[in-house]
């Protein structure tokens, strides 16, 4: 990097000085702006477009201890054809599974164009040694994952050991490399904003993840409440915008967890458009991590198409 930010991570002290030098977040202002943008009314044709865009942005997720190969195959089928009775429904962006199920998902999705994302690095707590985390990532990449969703070490972050978090992200980024593939797997960095306590910390963690080489910053694992709230997403979008201005590198954003209804999803899209502009209104730069959201999007889509309120009986369970 030839940017002025190149030397920021030279030592723990410089990194700390930089992150604490970021402007503070006006909590009330952020809450109010997110709330105000949430009142926008999106109807008829605009709503239809928003629903299709949101479907294309969904990372269809199953991250449970009870995940079976059958469940993952069923989810992959749904990802490629969200509504089998309506071929005009676009496919989702990716499926997101645990690392041991990546091979299965890759096989099930073969050639459909839906990407496979895998959580890694001792998801969801991130409490393990760096060696284990790197190996976890490397195995998922070797199994064919297109994207890696890593969690940061919140304990180290909250203790102020930013350099450790930075180096860990950089090490995982290196582990995402794949022989014969120039870009390697995409790295999404999960900040777990529900555990970061303050909006200032969200801004710092966003910058830290981007400086360390993350291709995406993601709000949450979905295992901690609150998860992807509007204000937190707003702060991360602002960080991404400022990072592009400072370095020229574009980073994506993925809110995940707690986005269950079409209304929630459309509020997110409004937030993106008003904060970073249309450049991010694309599955390459903005994703929605969700499982039940897709059914609600499909029901709303059917309501627009048929004029009748749709019922959940006519869609597959998550």
């Amino acid at each position: 990097m030839t940017t002025p930010l190149a030397d920021v991570a030279a030592s723990g002290a410089t990194l700390r000085a930089f992150l604490h030098g970021l402007p503070g977040v006006d909590r009330v202002g952020a809450d109010q702006r997110a709330k105000m943008l949430g009142t926008r009314s999106i109807k008829t044709t605009a709503k239809a477009e928003a629903i299709d865009l949101a479907i294309r942005m969904v990372d269809l997720t199953t991250l449970e201890g009870a995940d079976t190969p059958g469940k993952v195959r069923a989810m992959c089928a749904k990802a490629a054809h969200p509504d089998p009775s309506d071929p005009s429904v676009p496919k989702v962006a990716a499926v997101c599974v645990y690392p041991d199920l990546v091979g299965l998902a890759v096989e099930a999705l073969g050639g459909s164009g839906v990407k496979v994302a895998s959580v890694a690095t001792a998801f969801p707590s991130g409490r393990s040694s760096l060696e284990v985390k790197v190996a976890d990532t490397a195995l998922a990449v070797a199994a064919g994952a297109d994207e890696i969703d890593m969690v940061i070490d919140r304990g180290a972050f909250l203790a102020g050991d930013y350099l450790k978090v930075y180096e860990e992200i950089a090490a995982i980024k290196a582990a995402c490399a794949r022989p014969g593939d120039e870009h390697g797997a995409h790295l999404k960095v999960i900040l777990e904003t529900g555990e970061l306590a303050t909006y200032d910390n969200v801004r710092r963690a966003s910058w830290l993840a981007m400086l360390a080489g993350g291709d995406f910053i993601k709000t949450s694992t979905g295992k901690v409440q609150p998860a992807a709230t509007l204000p937190v997403t707003l702060i991360m979008l602002e960080a991404v915008r400022d990072f592009l201005a400072a370095t020229g590198r574009k980073v994506g954003v993925k809110p995940a967890g707690g986005i269950r209804t079409t209304k929630d999803a459309i509020k997110m899209l409004v937030l993106v458009n008003e904060t970073v502009g249309e450049g991010w209104l694309d599955p390459d730069w903005f994703r929605l991590g969700a499982s039940t959201l897709l059914n609600d999007l499909l029901m709303q889509r059917q309501k627009l198409a048929t004029g009748r309120y749709a019922g959940p009986d006519y869609f597959t369970l998550d």
């Binding site: 004029g307 009748r308 309120y309 749709a310 019922g311 959940p312 009986d313 006519y314």
Partner: peptide, 9 residues
């Protein structure tokens, strides 16, 4: 009419 057409009724 909306209730009569609702697919979840």
């Amino acid at each position: 009419p909306w209730l009569a057409a609702h697919m979840d009724v």
